[in-house]
Design a protein around this nucleic acid. Sequence first.
DNA 1: CGGATGCCTG
DNA 2: CAGGCATCCG
Length: 199
Amino acid sequence: MSGYHALGMCVSGAGVVLRDMMSSGFATCRLSLTPRQMQEALTPGHLKKAKLMFFFTRYPSSTLLKTYFLDVQFSRCITSQLIKWFSNFREFYYIQVEKFARQALLEGVVDACTLQVSRDSELFRALNMHYNKGNDFEVPGRFLEVASLTLQEFFSAVRAGKDADPSWKKPIYKIISKLDSDIPEGFKAAGCSQELLHS
DNA sequence: CGGATGCCTG
DNA sequence: CAGGCATCCG
């Protein structure tokens, strides 16, 4: 809940100001008047922001990322680093889900549909701990749905013995990649990364 | 060749 | 999470 408030405040704030700085000052005086807030390297605040964004998008394009990190000076290095972050986020996510799917199988679960990820489930706890450590952000319900589907897909695949195929996860990745949802505009706000760091 | 992906290591 | 490397494509 506190997370929502912080973002809400960012939305009405200095978003426009940053744009003006970029279009005028930066473009005409690139060497002498570099905006102070324009980061040349990703900060811990950016990392925290990226993790929260993961709750909405698992497969963000570099283009999308550029529109949500307006305070970052994108370069090949920065872009690849951000993309890399999400790649790492996905790895952790899928590893966790697979683990719980196999566990459910061992516990004798029969119907995949009964596998639902709720806010009080162990899987959610593990994921929330990783992407929202301080638990200061209200995870969107949509994420729970995506996680549930992912869990069911892994469960069904393993139960069907598809994990024998070296590339058995590919079909699942394909499905999940289509479930990305829009990211709240609040994440674009200037200073958002730092605000999150404090909350 | 240089950049994007993906797997997997430490 | 960052490094490395193998691989694929323009």
